[in-house]
Computed example of a mutant assay.
Amino acid sequence: MPKTKQTKVYDIAVVGGGPSGRIAALSFAKSGFSTVLVASAGSGQDGRTTALWQKSISLLEEIGVWPQIKENAAQLRKMRMIDDTGRLIRAPEVVFDSAELDLEEFGFNILNSNLNAVLEDFCGSAKNLTLVDGTVAKVDFHPESAVLHAAAGETIEARLVVAADGRNSLVREAACIEVRHWSYPQAALVVNLEHGLPHHNISTEFHTPSGPFTLVPLPGRQSSLVCVESVEGATRLMEMKDPLLERELERRAHSILGSFKLASKVQSFPLSGLSATRLIAGRVALIGETAHVFPPIGAQGLNLSLRDIADLDNVLSKAALRQQDIGGHEVLKTYEANRKNDVRSRTQAVDLLNRSLLTGFLPVQLARGAGMYLAGKVGPFRRLLMREGMAPGSGFTLNR
Rank of each mutant, 00 (worst) to 15 (best):
F28R: 00
F206W: 15
A91F: 04
T49N: 08
A74Y: 03
I256V: 14
A349C: 11
Q348F: 02
L398W: 13
L332R: 02
M386A: 11
R90Y: 01
A375R: 08
S169P: 12
D84W: 08
L398I: 06
L357M: 10
I287R: 03
T204N: 13
V284A: 01
S27Y: 01
R167W: 10
V179T: 12
A320H: 14
S317R: 12
A137Q: 08
M238C: 14
V171C: 03
L249I: 11
V350N: 10
T50D: 07
D133G: 09
S268Y: 02
L352P: 00
V293K: 11
S345L: 08
G393E: 05
S223I: 04
T334P: 12
H199A: 04
T204K: 10
V139R: 02
R221H: 05
A51W: 02
R180D: 14
P392H: 05
L374N: 03
T7Q: 12
E239R: 11
S31M: 09
V161H: 09
I287G: 06
A320P: 08
G124C: 09
T204I: 14
K318Q: 15
K5N: 05
A281P: 04
T277A: 01
L103H: 11
F96R: 05
E205N: 10
A163V: 03
E178K: 13
L362T: 06
L302F: 12
L131K: 04
D165A: 06
Q6I: 07
P143N: 02
R252I: 04
M79H: 13
L160K: 12
L362N: 00
H329I: 11
S345F: 04
G107V: 07
T130E: 15
A117E: 09
G18R: 06
G220Q: 11
S34V: 08
V132P: 10
M386V: 08
K265W: 03
A299C: 01
R278E: 15
T290K: 03
K5I: 01
V161M: 12
R322N: 14
Q45H: 13
A150I: 02
L353N: 10
E239N: 13
R48W: 03
K55V: 11
Q6G: 05
R339H: 09
L262S: 07
G21H: 09
G44R: 02
L321F: 14
P185L: 12
V94T: 05
